[in-house]
């Protein structure tokens, strides 16, 4: 038994820290930090509107009650808003990844607490928040860098686990709060009645259709961990299916789990994204000056 335990231990540790190219971290970092700014500006513009809501309507979450967090007011909300816009623009360049990364994580986490302390908690941020929390554990990473890193692999693996947990544990939550009858009751009918679109309004009038969709949702949520046990090619297929599920949800209910969708990108070979190289290829006149300095770096990453 002890010999089996000593075998499982190292192989589990290897799985949790399976190396990935540093280039994937560089691209993922840029995407995540750009997304934080887009989230503030476009995806959840209602958060900054809490600035005008009197403190009497602030209902701090558990974390807001144990940490000495201030009751949000206009000054606090606008300060965090502008600080995040500036810091994410800097962090997206990949410079000072630890310092800027921690600053963005702390401010964005507080931003989320402000978002969710007025009576409604959203459930689409877990994997993204975890990625923001873990990215600062890594140092500098260059776009396209093929060097494999175990510490980078751990950050990617943890984010992947969080993405899949969001599906798998959502099935458990449905059984816990809705009961097994969630499968054949009218949750989706209710959702379409409240938020339906031209793409989905007809579905409430087709007998049995939305119940069949409910069975399908539970099935795919429970099966989602399979993504860790299949070959790369099938894995990409499963991830494409997840994205298409969210596209249909958006068309039907105008609900999109944007931060979750961003976090899920960590399954893809993001190391192929090389914005600096693309800019140089398209605008050679810009590259002229810095070519000699970067030649070594390119030679390294393209070898």
């Amino acid at each position: 038994m002890s010999s089996r335990a000593t075998q499982i231990g190292p192989s589990l540790a290897r799985w949790f820290t399976e190396p990935v190219p540093l280039g994937r971290i560089a691209a993922f970092r840029t995407i995540c930090y750009i997304f934080v700014a887009l989230d503030l500006l476009f995806f959840t513009p209602w958060v900054v509107e809490h600035a005008d809501v009197p403190g009497e309507l602030y209902q701090p979450l558990f974390i807001g009650r144990i940490l000495p967090l201030p009751t949000p007011n206009a000054w606090l909300v606008h300060t965090i808003y502008w600080a995040l816009l500036v810091l994410t623009a800097l962090a997206a360049t990949g410079r000072a990844p630890r310092l800027l990364g921690w600053a963005v994580f702390v401010l964005y986490f507080e931003w989320m607490i402000i978002a969710m302390s007025y009576g409604k908690v959203d459930h689409d941020h877990f994997a993204f928040l975890l990625a923001l929390a873990l990215l600062p554990t890594l140092g500098r990473a260059r776009h396209g860098d093929p060097t494999l890193s175990e510490s980078a692999g751990w950050v990617i693996r943890m984010t992947q686990i969080a993405v899949i947990a969001t599906y798998f544990l959502a099935a458990w939550a449905k059984f816990r709060f809705g009961g097994i009858e969630w499968l054949w009751e009218a949750t989706l009918t209710r959702a379409v009645l409240r938020r339906g679109t031209v793409f989905s309004n007809w579905t409430t009038e087709v007998p049995g259709l939305l119940v069949a969709v409910q069975f399908g949702i539970i099935a795919f949520e429970l099966l989602s961990p399979a993504v860790f046990f299949v070959r790369k090619r099938i894995q990409y297929g499963i991830i494409a299916f997840f994205y298409s599920f969210h596209a249909v949800t958006y068309a039907s209910l105008t609900i999109a789990f944007w931060p979750h969708l961003v976090a899920m990108l960590c399954f893809l070979p993001l190391e192929r994204i090389r914005p600096v190289q693309w800019v140089r290829a398209r605008f050679p006149q810009l590259a002229g000056k810095s070519r000699s300095q970067s030649a070594t770096a390119d030679a390294l990453s393209d070898s």
């Binding site: 979450l61 558990f62 974390i63 989320m112 607490i113 969710m116 908690v121 959203d122 459930h123 689409d124 941020h125 877990f126 928040l129 947990a165 969001t166 544990l169 959502a170 458990w172 939550a173 449905k174 816990r176 709060f177 809705g178 009961g179 009858e181 969630w182 009751e185 009218a186 949750t187 989706l188 009918t189 209710r190 959702a191």
Partner: peptide, 20 residues
């Protein structure tokens, strides 16, 4: 939900009876 960010993923998790 109170235990954000570690609360249950309970989006659309409640049941509604068909005729409710």
């Amino acid at each position: 939900d109170d235990h954000f960010p570690f609360g249950p993923f309970r989006m659309y998790s409640t049941s509604n009876e068909l005729n409710a």
